[in-house]
Design a protein around this nucleic acid. Sequence first.
DNA 1: ATGAAAGCGCTAACAT
DNA 2: ATGTTAGCGCTTTCAT
Lengths: 321, 321
Amino acid sequence: MTISKVLRGQADISDATKARVLKRVKELKYIPNISASSLRTGQTRTMGLILPILGEPDLGQVAAGIDHALNEAGYSLVICSSQNDAEIEQRQIEALISLQMDALLIVSTQETTAFFKQEQRIKRSPIIFVDNKPSGTVKHYVGIHEEEVGRVACAHLIGCGCKRVAYLRGPRTVVGDLRSSGYRQGLSDHRLPLLPELLVDNTGSGEPDYTRGYDAMQKLLRRRVPPEGVMAYNDVMAVGAMDAARLHGVRIPEEMCFIGCGNDEQACQMGMPLSSIDIAGQEVGHKAGRLAIRMVASGRKAQTHKVLVTPKLVKRLSSQI
Amino acid sequence: MTISKVLRGQADISDATKARVLKRVKELKYIPNISASSLRTGQTRTMGLILPILGEPDLGQVAAGIDHALNEAGYSLVICSSQNDAEIEQRQIEALISLQMDALLIVSTQETTAFFKQEQRIKRSPIIFVDNKPSGTVKHYVGIHEEEVGRVACAHLIGCGCKRVAYLRGPRTVVGDLRSSGYRQGLSDHRLPLLPELLVDNTGSGEPDYTRGYDAMQKLLRRRVPPEGVMAYNDVMAVGAMDAARLHGVRIPEEMCFIGCGNDEQACQMGMPLSSIDIAGQEVGHKAGRLAIRMVASGRKAQTHKVLVTPKLVKRLSSQI
DNA sequence: ATGAAAGCGCTAACAT
DNA sequence: ATGTTAGCGCTTTCAT
């Protein structure tokens, strides 16, 4: 059909017919059938993203970043959820391949990559891991520099004059370990000793939430010499810690500085404005999207790509010097 | 092909060949091409959901509910975002139709339905509005009974013995107005007068956040007779209000009861466990998903469907009698 | 500048 | 119980 050519903007059509076609297309509210098109071209100009959970603000940022990057290049994004379940993740991968997505982006819930080794070959669709790298070798990965997260937070508190910096650790995951190791680096960068009593590990307590931060802080306050700076795995824990400190009569930030992580809009504005490390979800997503596009454009000839985004310090009242 | 029949579970295949085919399918990691299939059958067994924003916990619940309902019936769900923009919403609708989704579910950002009037006819794909009904006539809608939200919260506080119940109003949207009107109903149900001074309207202040709740509460505390119960548009506002009250020396719940709305896990566990109205996002989503399935199964012969889900009261310490 | 023919992967209907 | 034929809506190639 001539119509197909017009719609794809081929040159060899007279302006007259072009206008005539477009007019009729509008009238009929014609919407092309991508399925049919993909059957011929092998392209849908749509990519799929799998998230471990929906409604998580951080992941929402990542998704938004990917979306922007794709839209800029004329691609669309569709999202689905693995519900934090490896088996469902697997099913979703197949569903998206089945829908002929040009590329897959995954915030994986898997711990190892064994599973994917075989998967990658399934189709020429590139798979890009985002935000959460399963331990093991992975072809394409874009995420945050998690160690840097801990290092920057620690350096900031030290810069605020804190000699004794405490860390309220998060869960025993890859991310948790990296941030914790960044904390240690931050200390040694400034030739400060790592005091075991200041590294509060709340294992077993489950989620890194308000209560966990609160309890951890109480533990710290019982020491003979309290810390001068406190950093937490995430913002909610930091808020819990601040509340515990304030109830204990500690003045913030004069006597004690705090910094969280995640730059959660809500948590950072609860009474005491909380300094935080911005995880730059948007940027991670955008870079991942760009990579995916390059991948399909180059016919996958690119080898291996790893991108680490640098986190950003956001200063607020809780650590004002 | 015989293979096609095996994969679709047709009966007229011997167990021997069936097994042989399935084995080879596994080996080759064959994944069927839904695009091609849909071209023939007109079905993808996939539905599309458009959300105004990604990473919003409430909407995540709704999406999860839809997902469950669809999976139960062997359908898949893909999600995309309208970024709260009517034009993008329009583009996403077309993108999803283009992908041959069997039905569309939309948490719309539109205020009126004029826009959709034409749209509905575009294809036989049913469109179901979820959670947020644009004012005007809409064919299929599933959402929460927003007036009931306000009524139940109000009734609960009155049940706690509060004679003077204050309401910290939300934004001037359809939802905000309905909840507020529910508050009024709750009062009149119990033959209590509506005291204008207890209905705190914080127009202009922007988002219904912590600060807004805090400020609104301070306003209330300056009155000669303070309220005995306080309900807020959402949980964060309630938390802000509780903090303001506590800083003012008010004991919760002995002297003043509080209830929020949304049953936000995080906000409800910040120090003082906050009673809340659960918006039942999961259930709304599930019902919407069920409706969508019925829609496509019945070949759209169903006329008009409106479902209102009843919100649920969650009692916590902030309103313990 | 326009259109006719063929085929992408699949399945409904019909042989065998 | 298995295989054959035709066609879904589109695009690529090749006439005209």
